[in-house]
Write a protein that binds this DNA or RNA. Sequence first.
DNA 1: TCATGAATATACCAATTGGTATAAACATAT
DNA 2: ATATGTTTATACCAATTGGTATATTCATGA
Lengths: 236, 236
Amino acid sequence: MNILMIAIKQTHLFGTIFFLEQRNLPYFCFYTNWYIFVRGMKKSERTKQFIIAQTAAIFNKKGFAGTSMADITGATGLTKGAIYGNFANKDAVALAAFAFNYGQIRKTVHTGLQQAKNTREKLMAYVSFYKEYYPTIFEWGGCPILNAASDSDDAHPALFEKASSALESWRNNLISIIEEGLDNGQVKPDVEPEAFADVFISLVEGGILIAKTLGTEKPLLSNLEQLKTQIEQIVI
Amino acid sequence: MNILMIAIKQTHLFGTIFFLEQRNLPYFCFYTNWYIFVRGMKKSERTKQFIIAQTAAIFNKKGFAGTSMADITGATGLTKGAIYGNFANKDAVALAAFAFNYGQIRKTVHTGLQQAKNTREKLMAYVSFYKEYYPTIFEWGGCPILNAASDSDDAHPALFEKASSALESWRNNLISIIEEGLDNGQVKPDVEPEAFADVFISLVEGGILIAKTLGTEKPLLSNLEQLKTQIEQIVI
DNA sequence: TCATGAATATACCAATTGGTATAAACATAT
DNA sequence: ATATGTTTATACCAATTGGTATATTCATGA
């Protein structure tokens, strides 16, 4: 099985729930099978989620071509029959894994954004997210968007398309925040939303890349400080 | 052979020289064999260079795991016997290909740097390089450092080490330029060399990533303009 | 021109690749 | 408790993987 647990909980419904080290997802052991603890879910759907959760980091680290079906069966403890019973092919697993990786980040950022009241706080919410979660991102193999984009640009059009839309939606979100700020008078009128969004994304992605490649967190942290300064410079 | 030519030259020494479309490297056809036009080179060394030149872009685009021996023989028109006669294994070809890709960029940047007289011109030389050569870099599959780093971080330690040193040497070069400027009074005294170098690299790499992923050059060009502004802000 | 070492092609290898047909095991509603 | 559809394991497939031994071809100095 090869699963590392960090917590065990008792429930009256399903007995013991094992929390996995990675991502803190609730799994439980029922008879001899592992499930993700979501009631009302079909078994196949739970197995699907299990496969995705167990392989998401592998795809993020090794890339599509570098991840084999043997990696997938090894990480899940399932056989090829189970994998192909739930996914059409390796392609489908990879796409689902990317969606999972991206979704985890998106969800957490979104939560942080909802508490933000103005432009400054919204932009700062991103910075705070990366300040808090960069160790997890590093463990997970780096930014899924960067990885998927540079992994698939030539070889895997479907995955590249997913990565491209993910990046676009992040960029559009930043642009919207700044445009809204321009309308509300919370952002200095000479700021160009697109250019700022590109600098914003570059400082984050570049910081992750340099930090991961040189094996030190400092470049990312210093980039995030720079980003804070730049945010303060454009808001009123 | 699958080689696209853009120019043909006559020489009295070796007959016809065919300039390849990619990288403008001089190859020539002698009898039935192709060579890189470097006199005094052993045949094996020329074949080695030929293999490297023909596969460099493929490795940059497809990554190590995504590039097969069949890709290599297909791109060169040589058989596996020839490849393994000149390289120990696929690993060795990949490492040489990365060194080639990185070397091409390094060489061109270095040429631009030699004409620069002060800190501003030195930093601007980098910007000019990317402004001039970004179409070539895109055709070539993006920045080799970013590609190699994100491709090999988990799967291929030897290649990752190469990518890591390449990034480090780029970063150190930027830091040296700024430190020199601080000593000469050409840079404002409150500038932190490392932090500036990280922002510098991030704007370039991030710009390439966004541009390539979204399929438009604008983000890179706008980042380079931002970089120019930031350079002007730190020099005296 | 020819002998000799260097370079390349050919034919092969075991292992692994992604994928499938089918049989077994399973969960669950009745 | 059992019947039934769902899910998973087993056993297999052709194709491809990286790599090698050996035969052939080639380049070149004498």
